[in-house]
């Protein structure tokens, strides 16, 4: 009887193991291969979490968006389904293997992202990116090559966001309140750009949120953040400090 029990247990375990191994994994792409892949095609990348937006439930399914990067490129994972438990594990530096679909939203001049993503956590290695100074690339066609990367901007000047002379707005049109996205304008070399503190990434209690609320027109500042794209560069800023 004991032998029978052992056989049954072994059978159950074997069946579970077989089902887990049934799917062979696709090879991970290089960033160049990802760049060359057509929109709406399936992609597989190995990348490291650099930051994450808030976790929420979409129709009962937990999802969150992640800013990820590896040594040769960066990937924004849009609304990737994940449990709250896994979300807590996906801290900056965590290596993940991601399968999904290469997408762009808006479809013209928009953010390249991976949608319908699934992931597998790889605990073998961790890595975090250093911010790359892209100040000199602002306003050039070369900037788009840095999309989604962790970047920095040095020595920029805060400009008035609106006709009233405010240094920032809650929401793009000023219709928001504290806790909403912050929009502000900064200039360098005579050209002005709109930057954002994305509230799902850096909420009202974060240092960067408070720092932007304290900005005054004319301030000279250095910034770090992720090079998000919406109708052109629209960096999601994660730190602001007085220019060195």
């Amino acid at each position: 009887m004991k032998k029978f029990c052992i056989l049954v247990l072994a059978f159950v375990l074997a069946m579970s193991a077989m089902s887990a191994c049934a799917k062979t994994e696709d090879a991970a792409m290089t960033y160049a291969q990802f760049e060359a892949a057509a929109l709406q095609s399936k992609v597989t990348v190995e990348t490291y979490v650099q930051a994450k937006q808030g976790w929420w439930e979409d129709n009962g399914v937990g999802v969150a968006s992640f800013y990820t990067q590896n040594e040769d490129g960066a990937y924004f994972l849009y609304n990737m389904p994940c449990s709250k438990e896994d979300y807590d594990k996906l801290v900056p530096g965590t290596k993940i293997r991601v399968n999904g679909v290469k997408s762009m939203w808006p479809e013209v001049n928009g953010e390249i992202e991976i949608t319908e993503a699934t992931y597998k956590i790889d605990t073998s290695k961790t890595w975090t990116a250093s911010a790359k100074d892209v100040t000199s690339l602002l306003g050039t066609d070369a900037l788009i090559k840095e999309m989604n990367k962790f970047v920095s901007f040095k020595g920029m000047t805060v400009e008035a966001y609106n006709d009233k002379g405010d240094a920032f707005n809650y929401k793009w049109d000023g219709s928001g309140k504290q806790g909403d996205d912050l929009y502000f304008k900064v200039s360098v070399g005579g050209k002005t750009y709109t930057f954002t503190v994305e509230s799902y990434l850096c909420g009202k209690d974060t240092d960067v949120y408070k720092a932007v609320e304290a900005l005054k027109v004319g301030d000279k500042i250095d910034m770090e953040g992720f090079l998000y794209w919406y109708e052109g560069a629209n960096p999601h800023i994660t730190s602001v400090a007085a220019a060195k």
């Binding site: 939203w105 808006p106 479809e107 013209v108 928009g110 109708e231």
Partner: peptide
């Protein structure tokens, strides 16, 4: 044909002559 979720706001394409 496309949709907002796939392409973006219809107004943006309309106003750009697209």
């Amino acid at each position: 044909f496309s949709t907002f979720k796939i392409s973006s706001y219809p107004a943006n394409f309309l106003n750009a002559g697209q």
